[in-house]
């Protein structure tokens, strides 16, 4: 556990927790502007969270502790990921957890907790959301793992720090076909995993089309705040992961204040830019029918497989 890792382990979660609602705010603002609206301002998600924390918590009758623990677990998984993944520093506070598989599995664990909470309520919407979320997860997971496989094969490790450092040392790798294919596959997967258009519409209120929202219909107050925070954190984590896996430059490799400031700024800029692009892209898209989503995911799975093939045959 190096000093760099400890610093990163403290700075990263703070940055992610503080920044991710702002990222959502930025994205909403971008979208509003492109739609010709004024928008609620970048700080609106934070206002929402502050208000939700002040509200009453409601336990729907007949739900168990699964329902109550799920939001905590959901945020906790994102938090652990925020601690261990090299966002600001290449070293990790808990290096043996900074493994790509572990990170992917942790994020999946959060999704599972939420799906179980949806089922726990026993409402039709909860079940529907859980069912759809699990379907998407079941299809996303393979793509994610295979894309990761493509990236880690050349490095010979699934440790995120190792992958990021190796890209830093060998920039040409980013432009290799394997890398590009994997990047495209990962983008599709991230869109699906974070519930953005065209897979899920984060601002929909139409029950029959929603996925994420259907699972959390019963949550209120602080529980809901946690869930909103977690979904914002997951978005930033995924975008940060994407940014640092393919464009790791700027990340701090030494524990000097200057390097750390650069690292923080670089992450903010990269994630912010990705967020803006994602939000702008959403303006041009309509939501896919649920049963068209697998086709999209199958396509990305194929890309990921191609990436693996490329990483072997073109290496």
């Amino acid at each position: 556990m190096s000093a760099l890792g400890v610093v990163g382990g403290i700075a990263q979660p703070v940055l992610i927790v503080a920044g991710s609602p702002l990222l959502v705010g930025v994205m909403r603002q971008v979208r509003a502007r492109l739609e010709g609206r004024a928008g609620a301002g970048v700080r609106q998600p934070w206002r929402d969270l502050r208000k939700l924390l002040r509200k009453e918590t409601i336990t729907p009758r007949g739900t168990s502790e699964v329902f109550r623990i799920a939001p905590l677990l959901l945020v906790a998984t994102s938090l652990v990921v925020a601690v261990v993944v090299p966002f600001v520093t290449t070293d990790s506070a808990i290096d043996p957890v900074a493994d790509l598989f572990a990170v992917v599995a942790l994020l999946a664990l959060g999704a599972v907790a939420l799906a179980l909470a949806g089922l726990d309520t026993g409402t039709a919407f909860g079940g529907m959301g859980a069912s759809r979320e699990m379907t998407i997860l079941a299809l996303v997971e393979p793509t994610l793992l295979v894309a990761i496989f493509a990236l880690s094969v050349r490095v010979g490790s699934t440790n995120l720090g190792a992958i990021v450092s190796s890209t830093l040392h060998d920039p040409a790798r980013v432009l290799s076909p394997a890398s590009l294919l994997a990047a495209v596959a990962l983008i599709v997967v991230i869109v699906a995993e974070t519930g953005r258009l065209p897979v899920d519409n984060p601002s929909t209120h139409l029950e029959l089309t929603m996925v994420h929202e259907a699972m959390v219909l019963e949550y209120a107050g602080p529980d809901l705040a946690l869930i909103e925070l977690a979904s914002a954190m997951r978005l930033s984590v995924f975008l940060g992961l994407l940014a640092n896996l393919f464009l790791p430059w700027g990340i701090a490799t030494a524990a000097t204040p200057a390097a750390l400031v650069v690292g923080v700024l670089a992450l903010v800029v990269k994630v912010g830019l990705l967020g803006v692009v994602l939000a702008a892209g959403e303006v041009f898209l309509a939501k896919l029918r649920l049963f068209r989503v697998p086709e999209l995911l199958a396509g990305s799975f194929l890309l990921a497989l191609l990436a693996v093939a490329a990483s072997y045959f073109l290496a």
């Binding site: 924390l53 002040r54 509200k55 009453e56 918590t57 409601i58 336990t59 729907p60 009758r61 007949g62 309520t121 026993g122 409402t123 219909l217 019963e218 107050g221 602080p222």
Partner: peptide, 13 residues
Amino acid sequence: VATHRVRREARLW
């Protein structure tokens, strides 16, 4: 952080 400490039980929506 949460100021409203009481959990209320309510019927399912």
